[in-house]
């Protein structure tokens, strides 16, 4: 199966063939499974996947089984980008010196979780972006270390319960807002950066396609609900994903050569309460704490609007 060439506008543009096989051990309702499936449909067979330790890695490759129809490499937790750099350099040398894969474009696709990207893998990611490797890096962000059992990471949002940010007398979930990974990527001035969300599959696949077409480093930051970790119902994955966008908790961005754009505009925002209330990880929040998060999102939205130069995300309208 070839990589996707045409833009993805409607679901009819989504290719039928699968590069990501079923039968893996991911939880029911895991968004990461959907994301992997969509991603692999876009990149096709001429792609080498390098993956960091985490939920997707352990659930898709219990020896002797694998869900990956592509060549796939897992080294460790913190070095996905370094491994991808090595594959990319080797491909260049092999093509130039020995004519292996002559006249073929083989894409290197790095995939890691938020912990493996925002925290322990940040250094190797920075190195890869700064050196300009032709690697497309996809981070699926379930906002905690899920594989080890829901511990907080630098991507855990303000107020969220995790097993290491418990709710007690002195601690009320995660005390700090999420780390700005897009800002970090921007600082490396890489040609393509985007955020994506599985409730908007065509938008997500179009971003994967553009990352694929980029020559040089690209980063796609994908929102990825985790049913046990977020304490949401299995059938709520897409519902929660859509609410994240509709409340402004998550903004669908695309930054091409430094130029930002909001790809999914939200003229009327819903209050964050609607997003928070359906997730067990936020159940403990008081009205006051919810208002604090609301103010934080209001500021974030304002900042985005200023940055993209239009009112891409509108004001909160209570229904």
């Amino acid at each position: 199966m070839e990589a996707l060439k045409k833009p993805v506008r409607t679901i009819w543009d989504i290719p039928r063939p699968e590069q990501f096989a079923p039968g893996h051990n991911m939880c029911q309702g895991c968004a990461a499974a959907l994301i992997m499936r969509m991603l692999m449909k876009v990149v096709g067979k001429d792609a080498i996947v390098v993956m960091g330790t985490g939920c997707v890695e352990v659930t898709t490759t219990p020896f002797p089984y694998t869900s990956w129809k592509n060549p796939w490499l897992h080294l460790a937790f913190e070095n996905t980008a370094a491994g991808a750099s090595g594959v990319e350099a080797a491909l260049k040398a092999l093509q130039r010196k020995y004519g292996v894969f002559k006249d073929r474009y083989i894409k290197v696709v790095a995939i890691a979780g938020d912990g493996g990207t925002f925290d322990i893998g940040l250094q190797s990611l920075s190195g890869m972006m700064e050196r300009g490797h032709d690697v497309m890096y996809v981070v699926y962000d379930n906002e905690a270390y899920m594989n080890t059992g829901i511990q907080r990471s630098g991507a855990t949002p303000l107020g969220a319960w995790t097993t290491t940010t418990p709710v007690g007398k002195r601690m009320r979930g995660e005390p700090r807002p999420k780390k700005d990974i897009i800002g970090i990527a921007l600082a490396h001035r890489i040609p393509y950066i985007a955020t994506a969300n599985p409730a908007y599959p065509t938008d997500m696949m179009e971003k994967f396609r553009k990352a694929y077409e980029t020559r040089g480093p690209s980063l796609v930051h994908v929102y990825s609900p985790c049913t046990p970790g977020w304490r949401i119902r299995n059938e709520h994955t897409i519902h929660v994903s859509r609410l994240a966008v509709q409340t402004g908790m998550w903004v669908q961005l695309e930054i091409e050569n430094g130029k930002p754009r909001v790809t999914v505009k939200v003229p009327k925002r819903k209050p964050v309460r609607e997003y928070l209330r359906i997730q067990g990880r936020f159940r403990h929040l008081t009205e006051e704490e919810i208002q604090k998060i609301q103010r934080m999102v209001d500021e974030y939205v304002e900042e985005i609007n200023r940055w993209v130069g239009e009112q891409a995300i509108g004001p909160v309208v209570e229904e």
Binding site: A76, E78, A82, G83, A84, G86, V87, A90, L94
Partner: peptide, 13 residues
């Protein structure tokens, strides 16, 4: 750490 990661990956390629 990245040096060894990169050469292991390059060798695997």
């Amino acid at each position: 750490h990245s040096a060894m990661s990169a050469v292991v990956a390059a060798a695997a390629t």
